[in-house]
Design a protein around this nucleic acid. Structure first.
Length: 430
RNA sequence: GCCCAGGUAGUGUAGUGGCCUAUCAUGUCGGCCUGUCACGCCGACGACUCGGAUUCGAAUUCCGACCUGGGCGCCA
């Protein structure tokens, strides 16, 4: 019976394993195979004079990255990796790998990201790549557990929609029978409608689509959004929820992913400390202007250079709060005593923006005025506006980019490393 | 959308007008090798994205196409 490689220890007597041929070192009368499965690597040592003809002929066929089955005696050997090796009695090539390989799984020769993504199934055989997705899996489970434990309802909302969520032009049009439709850029409006339904706390982890033609290491055209909306909450409450979530994810990944973090050669993650600093937008602008020397003034967006400069000064996760109403979406709630400023916030990692959120406008007439103030036509938002006429509770929420969370947590150089099959400006396959 | 950079064996690279029937590594194939762990040694195989132009001569210069990477705007 097949056992995972990790379970083969120096104390094991006999073992049967299935794994991929990671490396072959043929010394002549003695051949070493390194066999790899998702749990680890095992050395198979074949003394050619002492094994049967069946083993010898299979050996010749066992090219790199072939899947093989080996059954034999385990020997405790100090100089072998893991202190043990397997001497085969049976050796079978289950599925042969062709050669040459599209990329070098052992990484003696590096491969460019583009080459790696073209052969992602092979790339993902590399332990350090697999490790990223183990961490991603654990992180997303932690997010769900965290939110379920606080009484959130997991919802699924349409990805095919009739109109833009926020009025931008950055939507992918698709053919929907005889109608025009789009891929949704955000579950924003649907989350809010469920506040109107009285669900009180909802979350969704799902794809969002942005048709922007950027070509950077931190943008994707299909990304995963962790979206949350909470009734009877203000922006302060959901910022606290968010920072607590971030801390919990880091802590859980440390606890549950030590071998993956080891494979990534980064060791234990420094866990951010809550509460994160709240940096008012006006102060952020002042810092950026001073640090960069650029003429950045109140009301400007915080561009990449400014974002980088502020990130270096802050050196940890932080919130930018109290944004000008003018540069945030119509659904962000203006302060009652100063409507030029709104209850919106961005969660920043020193490297980039991770999340943005706000307390939302829940008053129908104010929302209509804000939509108009952005130069949009409220008639196009009728399906969204309707719930606001029938007892919409005050509410707040945020959207957190899952890939950016993973990327910043693991110090990945490119966001594509945090997605199995990224969709960017040029890539539509695999 | 704007701006830069780049396409050389399966992979990663060197090569800026003749020294290129193109470098090195890895790989693959063959040979030797019983303790390797980037095994070692010997030999072989394998590439200039495409089209046009300049030139006695182009991987190298120019033009166009195709493909790619990155930056910016904007954003998660």
């Amino acid at each position: 019976m097949r056992i995972p490689i990790r379970e083969v220890t120096p104390e094991t007597e006999t073992a049967e394993v299935l794994g991929w041929v990671h490396e072959v070192r043929d010394l002549g009368g003695l051949t070493f195979f390194l066999l790899r499965d998702r749990s680890g690597i095992l050395q198979v040592t074949v003394p050619k004079k002492k094994v049967g003809e069946q083993v010898l002929s299979a050996l010749r066929d066992a090219s790199r990255e072939s899947l093989v089955r080996v059954k034999g005696r385990v020997k405790a050997i100090g100089k072998a990796p893991g202190g043990r090796e397997l001497v085969p009695e049976e050796f079978e090539v289950v599925c042969r790998s062709e050669s040459p390989l599209p990329l070098d799984v052992v990484e003696k020769v590096p491969a460019e990201l583009d080459t790696r993504l073209d052969a992602r199934f092979l790339d993902a055989r590399r332990p350090r790549v697999a490790a990223v997705f183990q961490v991603r899996s654990v992180a997303l489970q932690t997010v769900s557990d965290f939110l379920y434990a606080r009484g959130f309802v997991n919802i699924s909302t349409p990805k095919i929609v009739a109109a833009a969520t926020e009025g931008g032009t950055e939507l992918f049009p698709i053919a929907y029978f005889e109608k025009e439709a789009f891929l949704n850029q955000s579950p924003q409006l649907y989350k809010q409608m469920m506040m109107g339904a009285g669900f009180e706390k909802v979350f969704e982890i799902g794809p969002i689509f942005r048709a922007e033609e950027h070509n950077t290491t931190k943008h994707l055209n299909e990304a995963t959004s962790i979206d949350v909306e909470v009734s009877f909450a203000d922006h302060h409450a959901v910022m606290e929820l968010l920072e607590e979530l971030i801390v919990t994810v880091y802590r859980d990944v440390n606890e549950r992913c030590s071998s993956a973090l080891e494979a990534l050669e980064i060791g234990a993650l420094p866990v951010p400390k809550a509460p994160f600093p709240r940096l008012p937008y006006s102060e952020a602008i002042r810092m950026a202007a001073e640090a960069t020397g650029d003429p950045i003034t109140y009301g400007d967006d915080i561009g990449t250079a400014a974002e980088k400069a502020i990130g270096e000064l802050m050196g940890e996760h932080y919130f930018v709060v109290d944004w000008p109403t003018e540069i945030k979406p119509y659904y962000a709630m203006p302060y009652e005593d100063n409507p030029t400023v709104c209850k919106a916030f961005d969660l920043m990692h020193p490297r980039m923006e991770l999340s943005s959120g706000a307390q939302r406008v829940h008053q129908h007439d104010l929302l209509v005025r804000q939509i108009q103030a952005k130069g949009l036509n409220p008639d196009n938002f009728e399906f969204y506006l309707e719930p606001f006429r029938y007892g919409m509770p005050p509410h707040a929420g945020w959207g957190l980019g899952a890939e950016r969370l993973i990327m910043t947590m693991l110090s990945l150089g490119n966001i594509r490393e945090a997605v199995l099959f990224p969709r960017d400006r040029h890539r539509l396959t695999p």
